[in-house]
Amino acid sequence: MKVKILGSSAGGGFPQWNCNCRNCEGVRRGRIRATPRTQSSIAVTVNGEDWLLVNASPDLLTQVAANPDMQPARRTRDSGIAAVVVVDSQIDHVTGLLMLRERSTPLPLYCTDAVWDDLTSGFPIGPILSRYCGIERRRVALESEPFEVAGLSGVEVTALPLTSKAPPYSPHCETPVRGDNIGLVIRNRHSGKRVFYAPGLGVIGPEVLKAMREADLLLVDGTFWTGDEMVRQGLSNKTAADMGHLPQSGRGGMIEVLDSIGSRYVEGVASPQSVRKVLIHINNTNPVLIEDSAERGVLVDHGIEVGHDGMMFEL
């Protein structure tokens, strides 16, 4: 099983089109050591031709063009995208669905009831695509048996409900419901290896921590370095917690959580194999984007990697 990071940035990408913060202005002018990034998405494959797309970024067409292995060219009109799973209905995770309208067959879309409600009401991508390629909506139930995706033989996916935020356009943005946001455990049944994927992770409860401790690869929320990052830079009046994200630094932050996960645990027994820890969904304001920053050095000291577009893992 191969997992590829298609996009490693939070909404807006890096640099963000209208932002002149230190990071965006710096990378645009070549004044800092940093790499541009597209918006958050990963893809999973077994045979190298059929891919499960996890989140459909607004940058999807750019991401597909940058990854020619996702275009197997088996016929005149073809795509390696076998199906899509979306973990929430955030703009930066679902807008790319509209870019798939030229498909010649209905698009298999896996999502929770809460997300489907948003995609058929506040942001009606479902009804729109029904007039083009069509959608075969596949219900993702919470706390149920793993599901499989056609084309990914031997791979099972399990959804975990997370405590985070629905998008501002959602009717329940101020009154969260179960299924607004999920994390995914993606397991290779043949090797037994697991990926835990959660680009939006505001609170880490016992079940989520258990899933993280059982994983071989963690692809987790790296949005903000501090809880008040956007407020201090005068870019928003909302904290990381207000937006459903756990910052890296500070007491109870992501660094502290990841420090508590040294080895892989299965059924309470530690494996000698260490867990690979990678931050994704990194906001354009986060100083860890600067490769020689003090904050990046802190992550290195803690054995935490900063994800980048094109990063590939084999499990």
Rank of each mutant, 00 (worst) to 15 (best):
residue 8 S to D: 01
residue 9 S to T: 09
residue 10 A to M: 08
residue 10 A to W: 11
residue 14 F to L: 12
residue 14 F to Y: 15
residue 15 P to H: 08
residue 18 N to Y: 15
residue 19 C to F: 00
residue 19 C to M: 06
residue 19 C to H: 03
residue 20 N to R: 12
residue 20 N to G: 09
residue 21 C to M: 11
residue 21 C to P: 10
residue 26 G to M: 04
residue 29 R to P: 01
residue 31 R to K: 14
residue 36 P to D: 06
residue 44 V to F: 02
residue 46 V to S: 07
residue 48 G to V: 07
residue 49 E to K: 08
residue 50 D to C: 00
residue 51 W to E: 00
residue 51 W to Q: 00
residue 51 W to F: 13
residue 51 W to L: 00
residue 53 L to Q: 03
residue 53 L to M: 08
residue 54 V to D: 06
residue 56 A to F: 05
residue 57 S to V: 03
residue 58 P to T: 09
residue 67 N to A: 03
residue 67 N to I: 00
residue 68 P to F: 11
residue 69 D to S: 10
residue 70 M to I: 14
residue 72 P to G: 02
residue 72 P to M: 02
residue 73 A to I: 08
residue 74 R to C: 00
residue 77 R to V: 15
residue 80 G to M: 06
residue 82 A to E: 09
residue 86 V to W: 00
residue 88 D to Q: 05
residue 89 S to F: 07
residue 92 D to F: 15
residue 93 H to Q: 14
residue 94 V to F: 02
residue 97 L to Q: 03
residue 99 M to L: 15
residue 100 L to P: 11
residue 100 L to W: 12
residue 101 R to C: 10
residue 101 R to E: 13
residue 102 E to Y: 14
residue 111 C to M: 13
residue 117 D to P: 00
residue 120 T to V: 08
residue 129 L to Y: 06
residue 132 Y to V: 07
residue 135 I to T: 00
residue 140 V to Y: 02
residue 140 V to C: 08
residue 141 A to G: 12
residue 141 A to K: 11
residue 142 L to R: 02
residue 145 E to P: 01
residue 149 V to I: 15
residue 150 A to T: 15
residue 150 A to R: 14
residue 151 G to Q: 03
residue 153 S to F: 07
residue 155 V to Y: 04
residue 156 E to G: 00
residue 163 T to I: 14
residue 164 S to N: 11
residue 164 S to Y: 12
residue 166 A to Y: 07
residue 167 P to D: 07
residue 167 P to F: 09
residue 168 P to L: 11
residue 170 S to P: 08
residue 170 S to C: 09
residue 175 T to C: 05
residue 175 T to I: 11
residue 176 P to T: 06
residue 176 P to N: 05
residue 183 G to L: 01
residue 184 L to R: 06
residue 185 V to Q: 12
residue 190 H to F: 12
residue 190 H to G: 01
residue 193 K to E: 15
residue 195 V to N: 01
residue 195 V to G: 01
residue 196 F to R: 07
residue 199 P to W: 01
residue 200 G to L: 13
residue 201 L to T: 05
residue 203 V to M: 06
residue 204 I to P: 01
residue 205 G to E: 12
residue 206 P to R: 10
residue 210 K to R: 14
residue 214 E to T: 06
residue 217 L to E: 03
residue 218 L to H: 03
residue 221 D to G: 05
residue 224 F to K: 05
residue 224 F to L: 15
residue 226 T to Q: 05
residue 228 D to C: 03
residue 228 D to Y: 04
residue 232 R to D: 11
residue 235 L to R: 12
residue 240 A to S: 14
residue 241 A to L: 10
residue 244 G to Q: 11
residue 245 H to W: 01
residue 247 P to Q: 10
residue 249 S to H: 14
residue 251 R to G: 01
residue 254 M to C: 02
residue 256 E to T: 07
residue 260 S to G: 12
residue 265 Y to M: 14
residue 267 E to W: 04
residue 269 V to T: 12
residue 273 Q to W: 08
residue 278 V to A: 02
residue 281 H to A: 13
residue 282 I to A: 03
residue 286 N to K: 09
residue 286 N to L: 10
residue 286 N to M: 09
residue 288 V to K: 06
residue 291 E to V: 06
residue 291 E to W: 02
residue 292 D to Y: 05
residue 292 D to V: 03
residue 294 A to G: 11
residue 296 R to K: 13
residue 297 G to S: 12
residue 298 V to Y: 09
residue 299 L to G: 02
residue 301 D to Y: 09
residue 301 D to K: 14
residue 302 H to Y: 03
residue 302 H to I: 02
residue 310 G to M: 00
